[in-house]
Simulated scan of single mutants.
Amino acid sequence: MHTTEQKLKERIKELTCLYEVTSLIVNCDYDNVKTALKGIVQCLKQAWQFDSDTYVVLKTGEYIIKTAKKENTYVFLESPITIFNKAQGSIKVGYPVPKYTLQDFLKEEQQLLDNICLEVGNLLERKEIKENEVRVRRQVEQSDRLRILGEITAGIAHELNTPMANILGFTELLKDRVKNDAQAVKDLDKIINNTIFSREVVKKLMFFACEMPQEKETVNIVPIIEDAIDLMRTTLRQNGVACKLITSKKSVPLRIDRIQLTQVLFNLIVNAVYFSPEESTILVEVYEETNKVVLKIADEGCGISPKKAPHIFEPFYTTKPIGEGSGLGLSVVHGIVQSHHGKISCTQNTPTGTIFTIEFPKE
């Protein structure tokens, strides 16, 4: 039985805990929520009746925070942490067994724990809302930049097409005139090769700027993938890399532009070949889910660092040495996938390498 003085002392501890927790939440930096949660756990420990023996555990999907544990077995009071009406964690406050039982907890302590869990849930909700706002704002900014860049690059591509065609045509004519001069022919071949490379960059600009007409039709994409891999066999052989297609079905129907799908496959497989070591294997996997078709391309290369991963789909961003990449390949892929209302992402392969995953919705 508690005396009036003991009860008053416990109420003061509970009110102090509520005040300190509220202060921690109000002044919380959403980029450093873990620090606030650590402070909340310490406040809870001090608020309990037998604080020297109290053990507190806070668990959510992202955080696990505990106070020092003195014994192996505890009896707990527990309350859920609810985020957007879903239980996504809990806080447990315990006393060691057999020294204490559930009867040693106060009714007010359960009420205090419920209130603290409610406040923590609200904090994590606000953190998630802020992160979503930042993510949406970045997506909008990126879309605006891509739209403006698309308009600019479309104009540049149109302007470059004619002079490059002239360069190729006149260089071929000049080769016929100087065919007895080996050095001149060699130099002219360099001009032709570099012009062809530039023309390919212009094609990528056109794809990126969505200037290429799109012709969607429902087709079985398995033969398209097989043909794309077959066309890459020479490149694969020259680099000592194998490519294997994995599919559980011979027919995977999808409404898509077959030329653009081939463009996506070429870009991703060429990238995979470039970064793959000799005698490694590139895996191309395609399968159906309820509302989508999933295409995965996995290599065994060096992988993409977490620092570079957020930028790989940006135009003109490349991890290849200068002169070996235009930085448009993955931007083109990203643009094509988005124009089909799909999603593309990259993750680390195990033990090494990168996996590109594309999800096309079924229409």
Rank of each mutant, 00 (worst) to 15 (best):
A47R: 08
F207Q: 10
A47E: 08
N72T: 10
V333T: 11
Q338S: 13
A242I: 07
T218N: 04
T171D: 06
F266H: 07
G150K: 04
G323K: 01
V222I: 14
K92T: 10
R177K: 15
L261Y: 00
V21N: 09
N180Q: 15
G155L: 14
K175E: 11
L37Q: 01
P223W: 07
E324V: 03
E159V: 12
K34E: 15
H340P: 02
D29W: 02
K38M: 12
C28S: 15
F105Q: 01
L124E: 03
V93N: 08
R258G: 05
K38E: 14
I269L: 03
I355K: 00
Q6I: 05
F76V: 10
E141P: 07
Y317P: 01
V136F: 05
K179R: 14
D189R: 05
M212K: 04
K216T: 02
F208P: 02
L113C: 06
Q103Y: 08
Q111E: 15
Q103P: 00
F208G: 00
E20W: 02
E5M: 00
V252M: 05
P351H: 02
Q111V: 15
G89H: 06
K45R: 15
E109Q: 09
C17Q: 05
G325Q: 03
G303M: 02
L37P: 09
Q139G: 06
V284N: 07
M232L: 11
L265W: 01
F316P: 10
E10T: 02
L146I: 09
T235P: 04
K86I: 13
P277S: 04
Q238D: 15
P163T: 06
T16R: 14
N115R: 15
E300H: 13
K250Y: 10
S52H: 07
H334F: 13
Q46A: 15
K66D: 12
L174K: 06
G155S: 15
H2G: 00
A157V: 06
V270L: 10
N291P: 04
Q214D: 08
I83S: 06
I229R: 07
I282S: 01
R135M: 07
N27W: 03
Q103W: 04
V286M: 07
A165L: 14
R147G: 02
G89W: 03
T347H: 12
G61Q: 14
I229E: 03
K70A: 12
K244M: 11
V136C: 00
D230N: 13
D144Y: 13
N194W: 01
I246N: 13
K292R: 11
F266Q: 09
F50L: 07
P277M: 01
K179Q: 14
G150C: 04
T153N: 10
L118C: 11
